[in-house]
Computed example of a mutant assay.
Amino acid sequence: MDVLRVLVCDDSDSFREGLRALLSTSPEVDVVGEAAEGAAAVEAALALQPDVVLMDLTMPGTGGVEATRRLLAHSPHIAVLVLTMAEDDASVFAALQAGARGYLLKGARKAEILRAVQAVTDGGAVLGAPVATRLAALVAGRPRPESVFPELSAREREVLVLLTEHLTNGEIAARLGLSEKTVRNRVSNVLAKLRVATRAEAVAAARRAGL
């Protein structure tokens, strides 16, 4: 029986400890390392080459989305399974676009987490029930951002969607793994391309477009 090598990435010491304890109850899983910040997660993943990385999104410094993007650029064979509190549409899309193979919310049951670890290792895609429900509703009921704002880049569209969630520049930076200066520049680009003067007007334009 092959043992799955897992790297746990989360900024909460207690959560990492609990997750390690949970995973250690399975003879099919071996937790080979931990990381508390996105850049450290990338470094550990490239060094350890685990089968699966359990990735939180809201870590300090480099966020989980950017960490996922970076590590998969070098080691695309590693399966990233997001395990986070963030369940908003923008976070789900950003993580999946970065290459994550699964997305679970913290609070998922032990059996669900273990099944997800196995599934993403086998090449499958896993969405927790609450996330799958939101994603299905989103796909069925809303236009894609690029279809209504083709002038925006992919990153600018991510920023616009997060603006509709009323996040601050600091919160957007943490979510996307960017600096606040970069986010400010992206917000300015969004306002200029949408020909609006304020964030509120940009949100209003996004709402009118159905986002």
Score class of each variant (00 low, 15 high):
residue 180 E to Q: 13
residue 72 L to S: 08
residue 134 R to H: 12
residue 35 A to G: 02
residue 80 V to A: 12
residue 45 A to G: 07
residue 67 A to D: 00
residue 65 V to T: 09
residue 37 E to D: 13
residue 118 Q to P: 10
residue 193 K to F: 03
residue 141 G to I: 01
residue 47 A to Q: 10
residue 23 L to T: 02
residue 14 S to A: 12
residue 86 A to M: 09
residue 123 G to V: 13
residue 178 L to S: 13
residue 129 A to T: 07
residue 5 R to E: 12
residue 12 S to I: 10
residue 162 L to C: 12
residue 110 K to C: 07
residue 142 R to C: 10
residue 189 N to T: 10
residue 130 P to N: 09
residue 178 L to N: 07
residue 24 S to A: 08
residue 31 V to L: 02
residue 12 S to R: 07
residue 48 L to P: 03
residue 188 S to G: 08
residue 74 H to T: 05
residue 181 K to C: 08
residue 54 L to G: 07
residue 146 E to R: 15
residue 198 T to S: 06
residue 186 R to P: 13
residue 96 L to E: 04
residue 206 A to M: 03
residue 23 L to M: 11
residue 59 M to W: 08
residue 41 A to N: 02
residue 209 A to S: 09
residue 59 M to Q: 09
residue 155 R to H: 12
residue 96 L to P: 02
residue 145 P to N: 03
residue 127 L to V: 04
residue 21 A to Q: 11
residue 102 G to S: 10
residue 107 G to W: 04
residue 57 L to H: 03
residue 144 R to V: 15
residue 167 L to I: 00
residue 91 S to G: 04
residue 61 G to K: 04
residue 59 M to S: 06
residue 155 R to L: 09
residue 139 V to Q: 12
residue 41 A to H: 05
residue 174 A to R: 15
residue 79 A to S: 13
residue 71 L to G: 07
residue 18 G to D: 13
residue 72 L to K: 10
residue 174 A to V: 07
residue 202 A to S: 01
residue 199 R to P: 03
residue 118 Q to V: 12
residue 203 V to Q: 00
residue 50 P to D: 05
residue 155 R to I: 12
residue 58 T to V: 13
residue 163 L to W: 00
residue 83 L to P: 04
residue 177 G to R: 02
residue 154 A to V: 06
residue 128 G to L: 01
residue 55 M to W: 12
residue 181 K to H: 12
residue 101 R to F: 05
residue 168 T to V: 06
residue 16 R to L: 04
residue 48 L to M: 08
residue 20 R to Q: 12
residue 169 N to F: 12
residue 101 R to Q: 06
residue 163 L to F: 00
residue 87 E to C: 15
residue 31 V to S: 02
residue 193 K to C: 03
residue 46 L to K: 02
residue 141 G to Y: 01
residue 207 R to W: 05
residue 150 P to A: 06
residue 144 R to W: 11
residue 61 G to R: 07
residue 23 L to E: 07
residue 55 M to I: 09
residue 140 A to T: 08
residue 146 E to K: 11
residue 30 D to T: 15
residue 124 G to F: 13
residue 157 R to H: 02
residue 69 R to Q: 05
residue 105 L to N: 06
residue 31 V to F: 02
residue 211 L to S: 09
residue 66 E to R: 14
residue 120 V to M: 06
residue 9 C to F: 01
residue 176 L to E: 04
residue 157 R to W: 02
residue 110 K to F: 08
residue 121 T to G: 14
residue 135 L to W: 05
residue 81 L to M: 05
residue 196 V to P: 00
residue 169 N to K: 14
residue 151 E to Y: 04
